[in-house]
Write a protein that binds this DNA or RNA. Structure first.
Lengths: 274, 274
DNA sequence: AATGGGTGGTTACTGTAATAGTTACTAAGG
DNA sequence: CCTTAGTAACTATTACAGTAACCACCCATT
């Protein structure tokens, strides 16, 4: 009940109007007096409320034998009504704001998003817009909040690829990182990347809580870098597996050794590097 | 400006928030002070407003050299955001209200819609829902308000047919009534019918202003009657033309004569009958 | 016949929160 | 001392939720 009231408030109805409509749905036609009883709306207010709903074409009235009786619009029609209203409004806002947002404006700027919740929301927004490809560099901490939208994306034909930091990989399209055990045991900050359609990339550090901060850009260089970064990491994973053919634990050790050998860094430096 | 503010209010923003966002779109990044100047929002309030917009992820902030600077979310993303919000909300409301509106409830009831504006709105709602067929019995007075939605319907493959009372018939799918000249000269009340997909029918009398009243129903009998009514009238039109082959004016006269002859009514009665 | 409770509806008021707008203050820096 | 930059506190209006009181009718009970 709480939930539906909040949702319907977003659609522009107030609490009394919502209660009246919902009550009418479960019992109609009724007169004001009875609706007041069944809905919990004070009898002294019910006629105003019904008047408003009548004006919005959400309830209709009719002359009964004794009193005026009311009945609700069909839910299906109400939804259609709302859809068409919001569709129109969104279209207006769309054209107006696009005009303002002079496209000559620099497109290679950076947008910073702060706070875990905001980051998740923004990520989902990007994912739901993807048309062709999503490249991920993602930890298990964030995955649960993005999984639904990723599923949707795959369903509509979007190609998913990338690297996953976690034991239970929910997507066959993703590859678990070759150094996963080490990473998980260290549990430092998590670097995350989401690249969409070779068009935009979100990248940043997730630590804890509201200090987390990621950056979004459409700058072509950075977008390219983000996608390639993931691509390269995937390839290194692949090469390393091919080169060793060993069991998982041995393999991780091998990778560590190779890194140390060829990078010129100490073990400590390499870890901090990550 | 008025229009866009009203529209964006529907989306859940207040006037200051709207002005701030729109100003930011045309000039960013800026600090609070300058945004206050360009948007007309009092400087004393601008930071609250920006705080709210930040929480809604509609603007973002960043540490500039001297002051904190703000920039807006891309319009395209904002629209996506809103769409997904309203999509979710509408889905919730849809499932909840459908559950309440026990489908066992009688589906053969009548819904009365009063007032010209309401009638037009409701008609458009029905038309925009049509999937297969729209049968019309419509006057030129109402046509301009429905024409757009009818065009849309035809575009998506809906079959249109029916009778039109007016000189300038905008749809080749419609037939002008055989007694059009007489009707137009008399200018009495206008009977109107809209039947959708053999599923629902809207029928009633349009006089003038708020006394107009039409009735909507899904009652199968009435729906059938509405569609057949139009169908039969079309056929009579067709037969009459075939039987006479005369010029239009003569033809109308012929129709009148036939009616009189076979119905047993006087001319007067027939006219009142219409 | 009187009474009182249920039905059906109206008018007017109160308290609170959000919104829009104002006034006045601090404080840095050229 | 003027512009820039930001804060604190106040007022007025409105929408919203909730309450109190009243009228008028009908009808069953005492």
């Amino acid at each position: 009940m709480e939930q539906i009231i909040n949702d319907m408030k977003i659609l522009g109805l107030n609490e009394y109007e919502i209660k009246a409509y919902l009550s009418l749905l479960s019992e109609y036609p009724v007169n004001g007096y009875n609706l007041s009883k069944s809905s919990g709306i004070p009898r002294s207010r019910i006629y105003e409320v019904l008047e408003n709903l009548k004006n919005k074409q959400i309830v209709f009235e009719e002359q009964g034998e004794k009193a005026v009786i009311y009945y609700p619009i069909e839910p299906a029609l109400l939804i259609e009504k709302m859809k068409s209203t919001f569709g129109r409004v969104l279209e207006n806002v769309d054209t107006y704001t696009r005009k303002l947002y002079s496209s000559k404006k620099i497109d290679n700027n950076l947008t910073v998003i702060k706070g875990t919740k905001n980051i998740i929301d923004f990520s989902n927004l990007l994912i739901s817009q993807a048309v062709e490809r999503i490249s991920l560099f993602l930890w298990d901490d964030e995955m649960p909040f993005l999984q639904n939208n990723l599923d949707e994306a795959i369903k509509r034909g979007v190609v998913l690829k990338g690297i996953y930091f976690g034991q239970n990989n929910p997507f066959k399209e993703l590859v678990i990182h070759r150094r996963i055990n080490r990473y998980l045991s260290e549990k430092k900050e998590r670097h995350m990347i989401i690249a969409i359609d070779t068009k935009e990339v979100l990248s940043g550090i997730i630590s804890r809580g509201d200090e987390s901060q990621v950056t979004w850009t459409k700058d072509r260089g950075f977008v390219r870098m983000g996608e390639d970064y993931i691509e390269h990491d995937l390839m290194i994973n692949l090469y390393a597996y091919r080169l060793t053919g060993k069991e998982k634990d041995d393999f991780e050790q091998f990778v560590d050794e190779v890194r140390k050998e060829y990078s010129g860094f100490t073990e400590e430096q390499i870890r901090n590097f990550q």
